[in-house]
Design a protein around this nucleic acid. Structure first.
Lengths: 209, 209
DNA sequence: GAGTAAGTATATCGCTTCGATATAACGGCC
DNA sequence: GGCCGTTATATCGAAGCGATATACTTACTC
Protein backbone atom coordinates (compact mmCIF):
# COMPACT_ATOMS: atom_id res chain seq x y z
CA UNK A 1 0.00 0.00 0.00
CA UNK A 2 2.72 2.40 1.03
CA UNK A 3 4.77 1.14 -1.90
CA UNK A 4 2.22 2.44 -4.37
CA UNK A 5 2.21 5.83 -2.70
CA UNK A 6 5.99 6.14 -2.61
CA UNK A 7 6.56 4.94 -6.16
CA UNK A 8 3.72 7.11 -7.40
CA UNK A 9 5.29 10.21 -5.93
CA UNK A 10 8.78 9.33 -7.13
CA UNK A 11 7.44 8.88 -10.68
CA UNK A 12 7.30 12.65 -10.77
CA UNK A 13 10.71 13.46 -9.42
CA UNK A 14 13.25 12.57 -6.77
CA UNK A 15 12.46 13.31 -3.18
CA UNK A 16 13.81 12.68 0.29
CA UNK A 17 11.94 10.87 3.04
CA UNK A 18 10.60 13.77 4.99
CA UNK A 19 9.34 15.47 1.85
CA UNK A 20 7.64 12.27 0.69
CA UNK A 21 5.75 12.14 3.92
CA UNK A 22 4.87 15.84 3.77
CA UNK A 23 3.45 15.47 0.26
CA UNK A 24 1.53 12.35 1.06
CA UNK A 25 -0.15 14.09 3.94
CA UNK A 26 -0.77 17.31 2.06
CA UNK A 27 -1.89 15.87 -1.26
CA UNK A 28 -3.54 12.65 -0.25
CA UNK A 29 -4.74 13.54 3.20
CA UNK A 30 -6.27 10.68 5.09
CA UNK A 31 -5.48 8.27 2.29
CA UNK A 32 -1.82 8.24 3.18
CA UNK A 33 -1.48 9.61 6.67
CA UNK A 34 1.71 7.73 7.00
CA UNK A 35 4.09 7.61 9.94
CA UNK A 36 7.87 7.46 9.87
CA UNK A 37 7.68 4.08 11.47
CA UNK A 38 6.28 2.73 8.23
CA UNK A 39 7.82 5.15 5.75
CA UNK A 40 11.50 4.51 6.41
CA UNK A 41 11.20 0.73 6.53
CA UNK A 42 9.21 0.94 3.30
CA UNK A 43 11.95 3.01 1.66
CA UNK A 44 14.58 0.48 2.70
CA UNK A 45 12.40 -2.36 1.48
CA UNK A 46 12.01 -0.72 -1.92
CA UNK A 47 15.71 0.06 -2.05
CA UNK A 48 16.60 -3.57 -1.33
CA UNK A 49 14.16 -4.67 -4.01
CA UNK A 50 15.95 -2.42 -6.47
CA UNK A 51 12.88 -0.28 -7.07
CA UNK A 52 14.49 2.94 -5.88
CA UNK A 53 17.99 4.34 -5.44
CA UNK A 54 19.22 6.57 -2.65
CA UNK A 55 21.83 9.31 -2.77
CA UNK A 56 23.15 10.84 0.39
CA UNK A 57 23.19 14.62 0.06
CA UNK A 58 25.43 16.47 2.49
CA UNK A 59 24.43 19.93 3.47
CA UNK A 60 26.75 21.60 0.99
CA UNK A 61 25.81 25.05 -0.09
CA UNK A 62 28.32 26.56 -2.56
CA UNK A 63 29.73 28.67 0.22
CA UNK A 64 31.93 26.81 2.63
CA UNK A 65 32.25 27.57 6.23
CA UNK A 66 35.63 28.77 7.42
CA UNK A 67 37.50 25.67 8.56
CA UNK A 68 38.67 27.02 11.89
CA UNK A 69 37.79 29.96 14.12
CA UNK A 70 41.48 30.67 14.63
CA UNK A 71 41.78 34.35 15.24
CA UNK A 72 39.76 36.82 17.15
CA UNK A 73 37.73 37.81 14.10
CA UNK A 74 34.49 36.87 15.74
CA UNK A 75 32.65 39.63 13.96
CA UNK A 76 33.63 38.17 10.58
CA UNK A 77 32.16 34.84 11.47
CA UNK A 78 29.11 36.45 12.77
CA UNK A 79 28.60 38.29 9.51
CA UNK A 80 28.87 35.06 7.56
CA UNK A 81 26.46 33.37 9.91
CA UNK A 82 23.98 36.17 9.61
CA UNK A 83 24.19 36.32 5.83
CA UNK A 84 23.65 32.63 5.67
CA UNK A 85 20.64 32.84 7.86
CA UNK A 86 19.04 35.28 5.49
CA UNK A 87 19.88 33.92 2.11
CA UNK A 88 19.81 30.13 2.18
CA UNK A 89 16.82 28.46 3.69
CA UNK A 90 17.33 25.65 1.20
CA UNK A 91 20.14 23.39 2.29
CA UNK A 92 19.71 21.90 5.69
CA UNK A 93 21.21 18.78 7.10
CA UNK A 94 22.22 15.57 5.37
CA UNK A 95 19.38 13.97 3.47
CA UNK A 96 18.85 10.87 1.43
CA UNK A 97 17.32 11.65 -1.91
CA UNK A 98 15.39 8.79 -3.47
CA UNK A 99 14.96 8.20 -7.19
CA UNK A 100 12.82 5.60 -8.92
CA UNK A 101 14.51 2.99 -11.14
CA UNK A 102 13.28 1.13 -14.19
CA UNK A 103 12.51 -1.83 -11.97
CA UNK A 104 10.58 0.57 -9.75
CA UNK A 105 8.50 1.77 -12.68
CA UNK A 106 7.77 -1.82 -13.59
CA UNK A 107 6.77 -2.61 -10.01
CA UNK A 108 4.59 0.47 -9.85
CA UNK A 109 2.63 -0.58 -12.93
CA UNK A 110 2.25 -4.05 -11.50
CA UNK A 111 1.00 -2.78 -8.16
CA UNK A 112 -1.40 -0.35 -9.80
CA UNK A 113 -3.03 -3.11 -11.81
CA UNK A 114 -2.72 -6.22 -9.68
CA UNK A 115 -4.88 -7.50 -6.87
CA UNK A 116 -8.25 -6.14 -5.92
CA UNK A 117 -8.55 -2.86 -4.11
CA UNK A 118 -9.94 -4.34 -0.94
CA UNK A 119 -9.89 -1.31 1.30
CA UNK A 120 -10.86 2.17 0.28
CA UNK A 121 -7.41 3.55 1.03
CA UNK A 122 -5.66 1.32 -1.45
CA UNK A 123 -8.27 2.05 -4.07
CA UNK A 124 -8.16 5.79 -3.41
CA UNK A 125 -4.41 5.71 -3.77
CA UNK A 126 -4.63 3.86 -7.05
CA UNK A 127 -7.23 6.21 -8.41
CA UNK A 128 -5.21 9.23 -7.32
CA UNK A 129 -2.37 7.95 -9.50
CA UNK A 130 -4.69 6.73 -12.25
CA UNK A 131 -3.22 9.11 -14.82
CA UNK A 132 -0.30 6.70 -15.05
CA UNK A 133 -2.63 3.94 -16.26
CA UNK A 134 -3.84 3.23 -19.74
CA UNK A 135 -7.51 4.10 -20.33
CA UNK A 136 -8.52 0.45 -20.35
CA UNK A 137 -6.59 -0.38 -17.19
CA UNK A 138 -8.23 2.62 -15.57
CA UNK A 139 -11.67 1.44 -16.55
CA UNK A 140 -10.87 -2.02 -15.26
CA UNK A 141 -9.79 -0.59 -11.93
CA UNK A 142 -13.04 1.32 -11.58
CA UNK A 143 -15.21 -1.61 -12.58
CA UNK A 144 -13.52 -4.11 -10.31
CA UNK A 145 -13.92 -1.72 -7.45
CA UNK A 146 -17.56 -1.21 -8.29
CA UNK A 147 -18.23 -4.94 -8.35
CA UNK A 148 -16.64 -5.30 -4.95
CA UNK A 149 -18.70 -2.49 -3.51
CA UNK A 150 -21.91 -4.05 -4.82
CA UNK A 151 -21.03 -7.22 -2.92
CA UNK A 152 -20.33 -5.22 0.16
CA UNK A 153 -23.57 -3.32 -0.14
CA UNK A 154 -25.49 -6.58 -0.01
CA UNK A 155 -23.66 -7.61 3.13
CA UNK A 156 -24.13 -4.21 4.70
CA UNK A 157 -27.85 -4.10 3.96
CA UNK A 158 -28.52 -7.55 5.30
CA UNK A 159 -26.44 -6.77 8.38
CA UNK A 160 -28.55 -3.67 8.93
CA UNK A 161 -31.72 -5.77 8.79
CA UNK A 162 -30.55 -7.93 11.68
CA UNK A 163 -33.26 -7.84 14.34
CA UNK A 164 -30.89 -8.34 17.23
CA UNK A 165 -29.28 -4.93 16.69
CA UNK A 166 -30.18 -2.02 18.93
CA UNK A 167 -30.68 1.56 17.79
CA UNK A 168 -27.02 2.50 17.82
CA UNK A 169 -25.64 -0.57 16.12
CA UNK A 170 -28.37 -0.36 13.50
CA UNK A 171 -27.61 3.30 12.87
CA UNK A 172 -23.96 2.43 12.30
CA UNK A 173 -24.88 -0.37 9.91
CA UNK A 174 -27.29 1.77 7.97
CA UNK A 175 -24.89 4.63 7.72
CA UNK A 176 -22.30 2.18 6.54
CA UNK A 177 -24.56 0.90 3.79
CA UNK A 178 -25.45 4.44 2.76
CA UNK A 179 -21.81 5.29 2.36
CA UNK A 180 -21.19 2.25 0.21
CA UNK A 181 -24.13 3.24 -1.94
CA UNK A 182 -22.77 6.74 -2.26
CA UNK A 183 -19.42 5.31 -3.25
CA UNK A 184 -21.04 3.24 -5.96
CA UNK A 185 -22.79 6.17 -7.56
CA UNK A 186 -19.55 8.12 -7.44
CA UNK A 187 -17.87 5.27 -9.28
CA UNK A 188 -20.71 5.22 -11.78
CA UNK A 189 -20.00 8.83 -12.60
CA UNK A 190 -16.31 8.17 -13.00
CA UNK A 191 -16.98 5.17 -15.21
CA UNK A 192 -19.43 7.10 -17.37
CA UNK A 193 -16.89 9.85 -17.72
CA UNK A 194 -14.18 7.41 -18.74
CA UNK A 195 -16.42 6.01 -21.43
CA UNK A 196 -17.43 9.39 -22.77
CA UNK A 197 -13.94 10.73 -23.20
CA UNK A 198 -11.69 7.84 -24.09
CA UNK A 199 -9.53 9.81 -26.48
CA UNK A 200 -9.63 13.24 -24.88
CA UNK A 201 -8.50 11.88 -21.59
CA UNK A 202 -5.73 13.45 -19.57
CA UNK A 203 -2.87 14.85 -21.62
CA UNK A 204 -1.26 15.24 -18.21
CA UNK A 205 2.27 14.60 -19.38
CA UNK A 206 4.44 17.50 -18.45
CA UNK A 207 8.12 18.07 -19.05
CA UNK A 208 9.92 18.30 -15.79
CA UNK A 209 12.57 20.99 -15.37
CA UNK B 1 -9.61 -1.93 18.71
CA UNK B 2 -10.27 -5.65 18.61
CA UNK B 3 -10.40 -5.60 22.39
CA UNK B 4 -13.46 -3.37 22.33
CA UNK B 5 -15.18 -5.66 19.86
CA UNK B 6 -14.43 -8.84 21.82
CA UNK B 7 -15.36 -7.42 25.20
CA UNK B 8 -18.48 -5.85 23.72
CA UNK B 9 -19.67 -9.19 22.40
CA UNK B 10 -18.81 -11.05 25.58
CA UNK B 11 -20.82 -8.52 27.60
CA UNK B 12 -23.86 -10.28 26.22
CA UNK B 13 -22.89 -13.87 26.85
CA UNK B 14 -20.03 -16.33 26.66
CA UNK B 15 -18.74 -17.38 23.26
CA UNK B 16 -15.90 -19.34 21.71
CA UNK B 17 -13.37 -17.91 19.27
CA UNK B 18 -14.84 -19.05 16.03
CA UNK B 19 -18.29 -17.82 17.02
CA UNK B 20 -16.91 -14.44 18.07
CA UNK B 21 -15.42 -14.03 14.66
CA UNK B 22 -18.61 -15.14 12.93
CA UNK B 23 -20.71 -12.63 14.84
CA UNK B 24 -18.30 -9.81 14.33
CA UNK B 25 -18.43 -10.35 10.60
CA UNK B 26 -22.18 -10.85 10.49
CA UNK B 27 -23.24 -8.09 12.84
CA UNK B 28 -20.57 -5.48 12.35
CA UNK B 29 -19.58 -6.20 8.79
CA UNK B 30 -16.66 -4.20 7.55
CA UNK B 31 -16.18 -2.62 10.95
CA UNK B 32 -14.75 -5.82 12.35
CA UNK B 33 -13.74 -8.00 9.46
CA UNK B 34 -11.29 -9.69 11.69
CA UNK B 35 -8.90 -12.54 10.94
CA UNK B 36 -7.85 -15.40 13.21
CA UNK B 37 -4.35 -14.07 13.11
CA UNK B 38 -5.51 -11.11 15.17
CA UNK B 39 -8.42 -12.70 17.02
CA UNK B 40 -6.62 -15.50 18.86
CA UNK B 41 -3.67 -13.36 19.95
CA UNK B 42 -6.18 -10.78 21.14
CA UNK B 43 -8.07 -13.41 23.15
CA UNK B 44 -4.84 -14.57 24.78
CA UNK B 45 -3.87 -10.99 25.48
CA UNK B 46 -7.18 -10.31 27.19
CA UNK B 47 -6.95 -13.55 29.11
CA UNK B 48 -3.49 -12.67 30.40
CA UNK B 49 -4.76 -9.26 31.38
CA UNK B 50 -7.50 -10.93 33.41
CA UNK B 51 -10.26 -9.39 31.34
CA UNK B 52 -11.69 -12.71 30.21
CA UNK B 53 -11.68 -16.32 31.35
CA UNK B 54 -11.51 -19.42 29.18
CA UNK B 55 -13.09 -22.81 29.74
CA UNK B 56 -12.16 -25.76 27.60
CA UNK B 57 -15.28 -27.54 26.47
CA UNK B 58 -14.96 -31.11 25.21
CA UNK B 59 -17.40 -32.34 22.62
CA UNK B 60 -20.53 -32.12 24.71
CA UNK B 61 -23.66 -34.22 24.24
CA UNK B 62 -25.42 -33.37 20.99
CA UNK B 63 -28.61 -32.49 22.88
CA UNK B 64 -27.37 -29.26 24.35
CA UNK B 65 -26.79 -26.06 22.48
CA UNK B 66 -24.95 -23.74 24.84
CA UNK B 67 -23.92 -20.92 22.56
CA UNK B 68 -27.01 -19.14 21.29
CA UNK B 69 -29.05 -16.86 23.57
CA UNK B 70 -29.86 -14.75 20.54
CA UNK B 71 -33.51 -15.34 19.76
CA UNK B 72 -36.32 -16.85 21.66
CA UNK B 73 -38.17 -17.70 18.50
CA UNK B 74 -39.48 -21.24 18.21
CA UNK B 75 -39.30 -21.25 14.45
CA UNK B 76 -35.69 -20.19 14.71
CA UNK B 77 -34.91 -23.14 16.92
CA UNK B 78 -36.70 -25.52 14.65
CA UNK B 79 -34.76 -24.19 11.70
CA UNK B 80 -31.53 -24.73 13.58
CA UNK B 81 -32.59 -28.25 14.49
CA UNK B 82 -33.45 -29.06 10.92
CA UNK B 83 -30.23 -27.62 9.63
CA UNK B 84 -28.43 -29.68 12.22
CA UNK B 85 -29.97 -32.90 11.05
CA UNK B 86 -28.86 -32.14 7.56
CA UNK B 87 -25.47 -30.62 7.84
CA UNK B 88 -24.24 -29.21 11.12
CA UNK B 89 -24.29 -31.23 14.29
CA UNK B 90 -23.23 -28.09 16.21
CA UNK B 91 -21.05 -29.97 18.72
CA UNK B 92 -17.80 -30.78 17.10
CA UNK B 93 -14.37 -30.67 18.51
CA UNK B 94 -13.02 -29.16 21.70
CA UNK B 95 -13.65 -25.48 22.04
CA UNK B 96 -12.58 -22.74 24.38
CA UNK B 97 -15.51 -20.77 25.69
CA UNK B 98 -14.66 -17.25 26.80
CA UNK B 99 -16.42 -15.29 29.52
CA UNK B 100 -15.92 -11.67 30.54
CA UNK B 101 -14.74 -10.90 34.07
CA UNK B 102 -15.32 -7.89 36.33
CA UNK B 103 -11.93 -6.59 35.30
CA UNK B 104 -13.01 -7.08 31.71
CA UNK B 105 -16.11 -5.01 32.25
CA UNK B 106 -14.00 -2.29 33.82
CA UNK B 107 -11.58 -2.38 30.89
CA UNK B 108 -14.43 -2.28 28.41
CA UNK B 109 -15.86 0.88 29.98
CA UNK B 110 -12.41 2.42 29.95
CA UNK B 111 -11.81 1.57 26.29
CA UNK B 112 -15.23 2.82 25.29
CA UNK B 113 -14.61 6.20 26.87
CA UNK B 114 -10.90 6.78 26.57
CA UNK B 115 -8.85 8.14 23.73
CA UNK B 116 -10.21 9.79 20.66
CA UNK B 117 -11.85 7.76 17.95
CA UNK B 118 -9.26 8.49 15.32
CA UNK B 119 -10.34 6.12 12.61
CA UNK B 120 -13.91 5.45 11.60
CA UNK B 121 -13.70 1.77 12.49
CA UNK B 122 -12.89 2.40 16.12
CA UNK B 123 -15.59 5.01 16.33
CA UNK B 124 -18.13 2.80 14.57
CA UNK B 125 -17.34 0.01 16.98
CA UNK B 126 -17.77 2.26 19.96
CA UNK B 127 -21.05 3.61 18.68
CA UNK B 128 -22.29 0.10 17.92
CA UNK B 129 -21.81 -0.72 21.61
CA UNK B 130 -22.99 2.70 22.78
CA UNK B 131 -25.95 1.25 24.65
CA UNK B 132 -23.46 0.25 27.35
CA UNK B 133 -22.52 3.88 27.93
CA UNK B 134 -24.25 6.44 30.11
CA UNK B 135 -26.18 9.09 28.19
CA UNK B 136 -23.59 11.75 28.92
CA UNK B 137 -20.66 9.54 27.92
CA UNK B 138 -22.52 8.74 24.74
CA UNK B 139 -23.03 12.39 23.96
CA UNK B 140 -19.36 13.05 24.67
CA UNK B 141 -18.34 10.30 22.28
CA UNK B 142 -20.48 11.78 19.51
CA UNK B 143 -19.29 15.31 20.09
CA UNK B 144 -15.62 14.47 20.23
CA UNK B 145 -15.98 12.56 17.00
CA UNK B 146 -17.79 15.48 15.41
CA UNK B 147 -15.07 17.91 16.41
CA UNK B 148 -12.45 15.67 14.87
CA UNK B 149 -14.37 15.35 11.64
CA UNK B 150 -14.71 19.11 11.38
CA UNK B 151 -10.93 19.37 11.57
CA UNK B 152 -10.58 16.71 8.96
CA UNK B 153 -13.06 18.40 6.67
CA UNK B 154 -10.90 21.52 6.66
CA UNK B 155 -7.86 19.49 5.69
CA UNK B 156 -9.76 17.58 3.05
CA UNK B 157 -11.22 20.72 1.48
CA UNK B 158 -7.90 22.50 1.32
CA UNK B 159 -6.24 19.37 -0.08
CA UNK B 160 -8.92 19.26 -2.79
CA UNK B 161 -8.14 22.87 -3.72
CA UNK B 162 -4.51 22.02 -4.49
CA UNK B 163 -3.79 23.16 -8.03
CA UNK B 164 -1.17 20.53 -8.69
CA UNK B 165 -3.71 17.72 -8.58
CA UNK B 166 -4.96 16.14 -11.78
CA UNK B 167 -8.56 15.12 -12.45
CA UNK B 168 -8.35 11.76 -10.75
CA UNK B 169 -6.55 12.85 -7.62
CA UNK B 170 -8.87 15.82 -7.28
CA UNK B 171 -11.90 13.60 -7.66
CA UNK B 172 -10.63 11.37 -4.88
CA UNK B 173 -10.01 14.37 -2.63
CA UNK B 174 -13.40 15.87 -3.29
CA UNK B 175 -15.19 12.61 -2.74
CA UNK B 176 -13.28 12.24 0.47
CA UNK B 177 -14.40 15.65 1.68
CA UNK B 178 -18.00 14.90 0.71
CA UNK B 179 -17.95 11.75 2.77
CA UNK B 180 -16.61 13.57 5.79
CA UNK B 181 -19.36 16.15 5.38
CA UNK B 182 -21.94 13.41 5.15
CA UNK B 183 -20.53 11.85 8.29
CA UNK B 184 -20.84 15.13 10.12
CA UNK B 185 -24.49 15.58 9.30
CA UNK B 186 -25.13 11.99 10.33
CA UNK B 187 -23.51 12.78 13.67
CA UNK B 188 -25.61 15.92 13.96
CA UNK B 189 -28.72 13.81 13.69
CA UNK B 190 -27.48 11.38 16.30
CA UNK B 191 -26.53 14.21 18.64
CA UNK B 192 -29.90 15.92 18.19
CA UNK B 193 -31.61 12.64 18.92
CA UNK B 194 -29.57 12.10 22.07
CA UNK B 195 -30.55 15.53 23.31
CA UNK B 196 -34.21 15.06 22.55
CA UNK B 197 -34.61 11.77 24.35
CA UNK B 198 -32.26 11.79 27.30
CA UNK B 199 -34.61 9.94 29.61
CA UNK B 200 -36.39 7.72 27.13
CA UNK B 201 -33.10 6.42 25.82
CA UNK B 202 -32.50 2.73 25.29
CA UNK B 203 -33.77 0.53 28.08
CA UNK B 204 -31.78 -2.14 26.25
CA UNK B 205 -31.12 -4.24 29.28
CA UNK B 206 -32.23 -7.72 28.44
CA UNK B 207 -32.65 -10.72 30.66
CA UNK B 208 -30.47 -13.51 29.46
CA UNK B 209 -31.48 -17.09 29.28
C1' DG C 1 22.83 37.67 22.45
C1' DA C 2 21.25 33.77 25.06
C1' DG C 3 17.78 30.61 25.62
C1' DT C 4 14.41 28.00 23.75
C1' DA C 5 10.60 26.55 21.02
C1' DA C 6 9.51 24.80 16.59
C1' DG C 7 10.68 22.82 12.15
C1' DT C 8 13.46 19.58 9.24
C1' DA C 9 15.37 15.01 8.79
C1' DT C 10 16.52 10.09 9.64
C1' DA C 11 15.97 6.03 12.26
C1' DT C 12 14.43 2.29 15.60
C1' DC C 13 11.35 -0.17 19.00
C1' DG C 14 7.33 -2.63 20.51
C1' DC C 15 2.82 -3.62 19.54
C1' DT C 16 -1.30 -4.73 16.72
C1' DT C 17 -3.31 -6.55 12.72
C1' DC C 18 -3.46 -9.16 8.54
C1' DG C 19 -3.20 -12.98 5.30
C1' DA C 20 -1.54 -17.43 4.74
C1' DT C 21 -0.98 -21.66 6.47
C1' DA C 22 -0.99 -25.88 9.62
C1' DT C 23 -3.57 -29.01 12.24
C1' DA C 24 -7.45 -31.60 13.74
C1' DA C 25 -12.06 -33.59 14.07
C1' DC C 26 -16.30 -34.52 12.04
C1' DG C 27 -20.28 -35.05 8.39
C1' DG C 28 -21.79 -35.71 3.84
C1' DC C 29 -21.14 -37.71 -0.53
C1' DC C 30 -19.92 -40.73 -4.41
C1' DG D 1 -13.07 -45.91 1.82
C1' DG D 2 -11.36 -41.66 0.23
C1' DC D 3 -12.20 -36.87 -0.30
C1' DC D 4 -14.16 -32.40 0.42
C1' DG D 5 -16.39 -28.81 3.21
C1' DT D 6 -17.21 -26.96 7.75
C1' DT D 7 -16.04 -25.97 12.45
C1' DA D 8 -12.27 -24.84 15.44
C1' DT D 9 -7.72 -23.38 17.40
C1' DA D 10 -3.22 -21.81 16.64
C1' DT D 11 1.20 -19.79 14.72
C1' DC D 12 4.20 -17.22 11.34
C1' DG D 13 6.07 -13.42 8.80
C1' DA D 14 5.21 -9.04 6.96
C1' DA D 15 3.23 -4.47 7.25
C1' DG D 16 1.89 -0.50 9.58
C1' DC D 17 1.43 2.59 13.64
C1' DG D 18 2.59 5.52 17.56
C1' DA D 19 6.13 6.74 20.48
C1' DT D 20 10.59 7.96 20.98
C1' DA D 21 15.63 9.20 20.12
C1' DT D 22 18.90 12.00 17.88
C1' DA D 23 20.71 15.94 15.44
C1' DC D 24 20.80 20.12 13.13
C1' DT D 25 18.57 24.72 11.81
C1' DT D 26 15.62 28.51 11.94
C1' DA D 27 12.55 31.67 14.33
C1' DC D 28 10.77 33.91 18.51
C1' DT D 29 11.31 35.96 22.96
C1' DC D 30 13.26 38.20 26.80
Amino acid sequence: MLDIAILGLLEEGELHGYEIRRRLRAQLGILANVSFGSLYPALNRLKNAGAIEATEVRSSPPRERPPAPLTGSISGERAVFKARRRSLPKERRSRKVYRITDEGRRLFTELMQGGDSEDSRTFGLRLAFARHLTPSARLGLLERRRARLVERLNDARSAARDDSLDTYARSVMEHNADEVEHDISWLDQLIANERLVPATATPTRHDDG
